[in-house]
Write a protein that binds this DNA or RNA. Sequence first.
DNA 1: GTCTATAATAGGATAGAC
DNA 2: GTCTATCCTATTATAGAC
Lengths: 186, 186
Amino acid sequence: MPAAKSSKDEAIDAITDVFREFGFDGASLSRLSEASGLGRSSLYHYFPNGKDDMAQAAVERVSERASELVIGPLRAPGDPAMRVKAAAGGIAKFYEGGRANCLVNLFAFGEAGEAAPGAAKDMAAGLEDAFCAVARDAGFSPKEARLKAEHAIVEIEGALVVSRAQGSVAPFQRALARLPGVLTDR
Amino acid sequence: MPAAKSSKDEAIDAITDVFREFGFDGASLSRLSEASGLGRSSLYHYFPNGKDDMAQAAVERVSERASELVIGPLRAPGDPAMRVKAAAGGIAKFYEGGRANCLVNLFAFGEAGEAAPGAAKDMAAGLEDAFCAVARDAGFSPKEARLKAEHAIVEIEGALVVSRAQGSVAPFQRALARLPGVLTDR
DNA sequence: GTCTATAATAGGATAGAC
DNA sequence: GTCTATCCTATTATAGAC
């Protein structure tokens, strides 16, 4: 069985939510402290470099979830289109049905240093690689598969932006429904 | 001939660039002052409500450009696919080839009040309406055309996010090349 | 590890002279 | 319209006691 979550572990969950909701600049220490239930001093005890460390921990947490929910299903054996459908379900969970934001987008702005945005970019690259592999399994050339994978990421990121702007998850859901076609249709 | 640009008019251009590069929170008065060449007091003379007024002026400026560069070509007479191609050229200019960001995305985060994000959303809605009209001209039902227009906006917003994250405009350029297909192909 | 207190800075915004 | 000076607040971050 999994070990009981440590205090730091639970704090990272709360911290991650704050970054995803408010972005790097908007995630003030006050908000991070309140959400995590840790005082300022405790936060600096766990994260000596302050916000930058917290942002990095958030990206790591989010990357783990992406591996479980999205990359795992994509790498499973079976029909490529079915794997994409399974992954779409994972993506929906990962982004809370379209209500959560993507750290790749959020950390591209603001005073975040180098580490967190870089790690977020790496996560996106890993996702794209997994999409690429599934497109290759569907019979596409490496070049074609790479473009299809990029297209899939574009759809997801764009749908999140549009859904947030419109205050409705419908565009995100529709984009997810398009994903199998984007990745496996000729 | 157009009248000479006023001091305020030129300032709005500079201010718009700052918001597009740094987002609302990142656009500090120091940056806005330096970029516009106006002291703090002058900024508050032109924009009594401070940053919120400046952000609104930026959205207005950007909306005008979107009308000229994108909505105009979309509404021109002629073959729908050709109109979309012309609009794609305008979109490339509007987003500086993929290097500039979208205020709809940027103003969805941070301390921006209600007015500027709302105006940005209205601009996006106007763009979507124009896309929708061109899809209808291409023979699609109102419902189909609406979905295609949404899809086009999703592609553009997503491509901007991906291009920014990767530090390359290639994904944006490829998304633009897909636009005619998205809007006019069965 | 957590507390209280506090530093040090930057932020947005205003007042009044010119 | 622009300048200088200033205020208030919030921010990140640290120090030292417990």
